[in-house]
Design a protein around this nucleic acid. Structure first.
Lengths: 193, 193
DNA sequence: ACTGTCTTTATGACTAGGTACTAATTATTA
DNA sequence: TAATAATTAGTACCTAGTCATAAAGACAGT
């Protein structure tokens, strides 16, 4: 072997990258002792790899996720609302990101697409709050990480407190999803079909 | 008025609590100047209210959300898997929490229920990775914040690369959701109905 | 007017988890 | 063995604080 240390440095840095990815919340001291090197060496490694200091990592994760959790979980609408005519139709866009997809295949998990469609459909309805009653949906093509989803929703009929909304999602003009939703507004209870 | 300053202190502290809730990522200097008081005063306020320092707030949000995002968005299964017979049936439980529900009504957003059902249905299938093809679902009753969802999935038929799974969700033995999913395993492309 | 209490501001010493830089030491390898 | 790379050590400095002490300002009651 021509260079034990050089290799070990590269290997160490590779492992460091992985470690940071798996658990970004360790300080230099902990990381250094995990590799059996000095703090300075570890800091050089971080510098070379462009890995920011612990507090900045905290900041990044906190800020990134704060947005995510606010906009994804707690939000009234999943995706970005582009156009909306209350009681008629609406368009929303969702950029698919890491974490929405299976790691193995990079295929976006179905429920994100469902959430996108459902929340847009809900936004279109001109009633205080509606509850999803029935949904008939079909995934026409797999959606891959990075695909930009364009959802178009159309309110097609209202019967009593039931609202019928159709949603189509396309990626690059190609249809990938369609869904028919029936929402029941909340003034009355949801009854049997 | 017996004490202008005392009142303004209380008011200031109330406002501080709100500000921190809305945007926890401001340091003492910014907060102090927002109220027109000195840094020391603001720190006293924080102490009295038990609000931790900025870095700890970063840490809390980062660590809290890291878990959330990992377990909720990126997870292979939504909810807790209780029982699973691969290729036959499975049971999973999901405790509904804040953030899953509309603030106004405390009704849990439909896509969380969908995600719960879909991911369990997926877990039951004995194939490498499957993609949701078609789903026919019905919400029978509104689900409220705090409800504990019990999902039971059953693989009812396999035809070629199509897997038919039925999922029932109950809250306190009362059925609240049913869904029929068709998953297409990935060896072949998804074709038209 | 003086005292007491609350509130606010100031000051200094100290901390974690670093950055930035210089210098020295220890491999490794041609 | 000399050159080069890798590692370690050490110093000054930074931010966003903590903790403790002190002093100044506001206001009420006596």
């Amino acid at each position: 072997m021509s260079n034990k240390k050089r290799v070990s440095k590269k290997v160490r840095q590779e492992k460091l990258k992985e470690m940071i990815k798996e658990d970004p919340f360790q300080n230099d001291e902990e990381l250094a002792s995990a590799f059996g090197v000095s703090i300075q060496t570890l800091r050089l490694d971080r510098m070379e790899l462009g890995i920011p200091e612990l507090r900045e990592r905290f900041r990044n994760v906190a800020e990134g996720n704060y947005e995510k959790v606010r906009s994804m979980v707690g939000a009234e609408i999943v995706g970005e609302l582009i156009d909306l005519t209350l009681g008629k139709q609406g368009i929303s866009i969702l950029e698919t990101t890491e974490g929405m997809a299976f790691k193995k295949t990079n295929i976006v998990r179905g429920h994100h697409i469902f959430a996108h469609a459902e929340s847009l459909a809900m936004a279109v309805i001109d009633a205080d709050v509606a509850l999803t009653g029935v949904a008939n949906i079909k995934y026409l093509k797999p959606i891959y990480l990075g695909d930009k989803l364009v959802a178009k929703a159309e309110l097609v009929r209202i019967r009593g407190n039931k609202h019928f909304v159709h949603v189509k999602i396309t990626v690059n003009q190609q249809q990938v999803f369609r869904g028919k939703f029936i929402f029941v507004s909340l003034s009355m209870d949801v009854d049997e079909e």
